[in-house]
Design a protein around this nucleic acid. Sequence first.
DNA 1: TATTGTTATACTCTATAACTATA
DNA 2: TATAGTTATAGAGTATAACAATA
Lengths: 153, 153
Amino acid sequence: MDIVAALVRTSFLVDAVYTESAREYGITQQQGQLLCVLMPRAYAMGELSTTLRLAKSSLSGLVDRTERLGLVRREPDPRDTRGVLVGLTADGDRLARQFYDETCRRIAELPAGLAGGDRETLAGLLARVVLGNEVPVVFPAGAGKDPAGAGKE
Amino acid sequence: MDIVAALVRTSFLVDAVYTESAREYGITQQQGQLLCVLMPRAYAMGELSTTLRLAKSSLSGLVDRTERLGLVRREPDPRDTRGVLVGLTADGDRLARQFYDETCRRIAELPAGLAGGDRETLAGLLARVVLGNEVPVVFPAGAGKDPAGAGKE
DNA sequence: TATTGTTATACTCTATAACTATA
DNA sequence: TATAGTTATAGAGTATAACAATA
């Protein structure tokens, strides 16, 4: 298997786990991703649009639907009257942590067949790929409480 | 960056490249994936449903839309009167090869910052992850003509 | 005038449930 | 009765273009 097929099929696998986990928490993959991005802090719509690589109108709709679930909230941006800041509600924060922890747990199981040293090597190489390609932080490492089993590995 | 964040962010990155590439060929990511799966041979709807992890009605719609673009074709299954076989049309085969080659080229660029040996190591470790988790072959390695620059690496 | 964000509109994607036809 | 697919329906996701309000 060449590097391209390996990357694409790994991506497909991770995506399926992420989607399935979100589903079990009553949210969609996109909503889960939004919650994870917002875990450390509130974002302006424009920032979110860039981070999630979505057209701004697409993001408006995503925030609308997630707001309707009571998971995020729009607040005025004190530094720009035109803007809004999107942040987690108390419910959203609780769900985000649960979803994040559980999803970490499941994804951490994917390389279960690798020995500890190989997992370290894989993590290091992927980190270099990610950092070399300006990937926005859609999934913070070690945000919130230490996710079970995924903290330092 | 731990292994979980590395996997999720890599997945996000690969997904973005794949989607962008599809877009430039006038198709969606899902249609592109369908075309790639069908490159080696025709599939029954049920097989496709399993391979792409889609509900069968979701797949019916996807095939409908892709058929409307003239890229795939439904044919009766000679071995089961109830079933249909979905295969590429001549146009679909041509587009699939172009899309596949170009997408391979772009994804092969993602680990450009890694030395050849490190790329080999990464490919090997990811292959073990994929093979250890029963990922369907959504993106064949080396199907059709040798994709530029992604053949043996 | 440029930027921030929303609305209007039109697709695509997805799933569940009900259905048809064949095995 | 079980299986292969389709249809009906509903909602989520996405983008482009036009718009409102503020910088």
